[in-house]
């Protein structure tokens, strides 16, 4: 059994990060994907994770929202989410605790994952009504506001099968925002899109960065986009952060050889 006494029960104080990965290890069977992984994301910060496939970058998002970890503790907004407090000690979180603790986190996926049997607006109302307990009227107003923001209000009564990939992804962003998350996760949200519609999705994310004080963690292959909007870029290699810095530092003057190799490979691929 892992000794958890070295981890604080809560993160407090003005310097406390919005998200902290504290010596986290994630394994799938024998395969170690993340080992002793540490990362802080400050409130309102936009952090982008880049790196070759298989480097564990998507896992960083998945352990926040979907999967359990084997070692370490993850904190969101001061409270542990991977663990809970019991008699003054941290113990692995129960399913119920986990679900509640993850409420302040929103996530968007590569393949959108809209609910196909619901219209755009129903997709955006589902969480607020069922989980947050909003009245249908309030949830509808909130959903309409967000669909307006992502430019999808005219299609609000369409089912996902009638929408293009870019449109579906914008609805998916509105759906996640309808939960009023403090942290947003974007998992390769433009990777499944046709090139001509990538812009409409990145535009929405750009708008979020400029107009809302959301903490965001994004995994992407769009280096130009990452450079444009990130406060910090982390280059992932072999389950850990090989190098991180501002976009200017990381893209303009990478220090590590692996970073340089990766960036030049990406550049030559166009």
């Amino acid at each position: 059994m892992e000794d958890l006494s070295r981890f604080p029960l809560r993160l407090e104080g003005p310097d406390a990060p919005m998200v902290r990965f504290d010596h986290v290890t994630k394994r799938y069977g024998d395969l170690v994907v993340l080992e002793d992984f540490c990362l802080d994301v400050a409130e309102g910060e936009m952090v982008t994770v880049i790196g070759p496939s298989g480097s564990g970058k998507t896992t960083v998002l998945r352990i926040l929202m979907l999967e359990r970890i084997q070692e370490g503790v993850i904190y969101v907004d001061g409270a542990p989410i991977s663990h809970m407090e019991k008699k003054g000690r941290l113990v692995p979180a129960s399913e119920r605790y986990l679900r509640r603790a993850r409420e302040p986190i929103g996530m968007c996926f590569q393949h959108f994952n809209l609910f196909p049997h619901m219209t755009a607006i129903q997709n955006c109302m589902e969480g607020p009504v069922q989980v947050l307990g909003l009245s249908r009227q309030d949830a509808r107003e909130r959903a309409e506001e967000l669909l307006e923001m992502v430019g999808m209000i005219e299609k609000k009564d369409e089912h996902p099968s009638r929408l293009s990939g870019g449109q579906q992804q914008r609805v998916a962003i509105a759906r996640a925002l309808a939960m009023r998350p403090k942290v947003m996760l974007f998992d390769e949200v433009t990777s499944a899109l046709d090139p001509e519609v990538i812009g409409e999705v990145t535009e929405v994310i750009r708008k979020l960065v400029h107009e809302h004080r959301l903490t965001m963690l994004m995994v992407t292959h769009q280096m130009g986009f990452a450079a444009d909007i990130s406060d910090r870029v982390c280059f992932f290699y072999g389950g850990r952060i090989e190098e991180q810095g501002t976009p200017e530092e990381l893209f303009g003057n990478p220090q590590k050889e692996r970073t340089q190799q990766f960036l030049s490979a990406v550049k030559s691929a166009g």
Binding site: R99, F115, V131
Partner: peptide, 23 residues
Amino acid sequence: VPKGQWEAAAALSLSTRDTYFRI
């Protein structure tokens, strides 16, 4: 039902019951 649907339900913190009966 694709795995992504379960994940989307989890990302909205839907309860197990709602996940089954509504999604």
